[in-house]
């Protein structure tokens, strides 16, 4: 355990973490509930994400996994502990970290291409380059034909693809995803998982992907971080050594899923037991 004073000096990049793209150290976050009580979202969470790594955070609902993602995005701050990018504390949101939300969050007053173009404009890409880059990324997610469509004219899956194109077009170093496929039907979800894997293999971004779906986590991740019942901490850090590109029906993957699932069920049961106990 390092002394607290050393942790405070996070402004100086820590050589021990030089290899980590993202680092979360001893992070805790407490929310006030509507009834005035305190709800601990996560407690003493520490992990690192290496450059180019695909990490899934998996856990029962309420375990604070979205809270962690929001802190990495700079949309929320820890009450205790440090959240670092390249060894520097994350002070706020920024275009170096693109975020995919559960809802596509496309701007409804712009076309699909307009949405991508808007993001590029904000990052400061000159107008002359924007059109090509927009079309390049829309092609990558197979939406070229829908460039001029309005978001509401697309299906849920297509909207989420558009959101992915918008996120990646800015060429962020990190992609943060908060259950982006949770609202989609099972088939669309599988197609998008495969597509995300393909795009990730192409681009080699650092990805942190939050999900409550074990199969999704096992299919996508290099490493799965399993979180406990709330207040969430990381109870397992498991590397997924299955070759890529992966196939959902790979038996090796099925074994991994079974292993994680057993552990996750234990955690979910704790939540259930607590809820029943307090009722």
């Amino acid at each position: 355990m390092r002394p607290a004073t050393a942790r405070r000096m996070a402004l100086v990049p820590d050589p021990a973490l030089a290899s980590a793209k993202l680092a979360v150290r001893d992070v805790a976050r407490v929310y006030r509930s509507a009834r005035g009580g305190k709800v601990s979202a996560c407690a003493d969470v520490s992990f690192e994400v290496h450059p180019g790594e695909f990490v899934c955070i998996l856990g029962p609902s309420g375990c604070g996994k979205s809270t962690l993602l929001n802190m990495l995005a700079g949309l929320d701050r820890p009450d205790r502990g440090d959240v670092l990018i390249d060894g520097h504390p994350i002070a706020g949101p920024g275009p170096d970290r693109a975020v995919l939300f559960q809802e596509p969050a496309l701007f409804p007053w712009m076309s699909v291409a307009g949405n991508v173009d808007f993001a590029l404009k904000f990052v400061g890409v000159p107008k002359s380059e924007r059109r090509d880059r927009t079309m390049h990324w829309l092609a990558k997610v197979q939406l070229s034909r829908f460039a001029e469509a309005q978001p509401h004219e697309l299906s849920g899956g297509m909207r989420q693809r558009a959101a992915l194109a918008r996120a990646l077009a800015c060429e962020p170093e990190v992609l943060l995803a908060d259950e982006p496929f949770a609202a989609l039907d099972a088939q669309t979800r599988e197609i998008l998982q495969a597509e995300l894997q393909r795009v990730w293999l192409d681009t080699g971004k650092t990805v942190v992907f939050v999900t409550h779906n074990v199969r999704e986590a096992a299919f996508l991740a290099d490493r799965v971080l399993l979180m406990s019942a709330p207040p969430g901490t990381i109870v397992e850090d498991r590397a997924i050594d299955v070759e890529r590109p992966r196939n959902v029906d790979d038996p090796a993957l099925a074994r991994v899923v079974a292993g994680i699932h057993a552990h996750l069920i234990e955690e979910v049961n704790k939540v259930v037991a607590r809820e029943i106990g307090s009722a």
């Binding site: 700079g74 706020g92 949101p93 920024g94 975020v99 939300f101 969050a105 904000f122 800015c170």
Partner: peptide, 16 residues
């Protein structure tokens, strides 16, 4: 709020 969060993650803040 989601649209605002999305805008912020693209680097928009304040008046922009």
């Amino acid at each position: 709020p989601l649209l605002q969060r999305a805008g912020r993650t693209m680097g928009a803040s304040g008046w922009r």
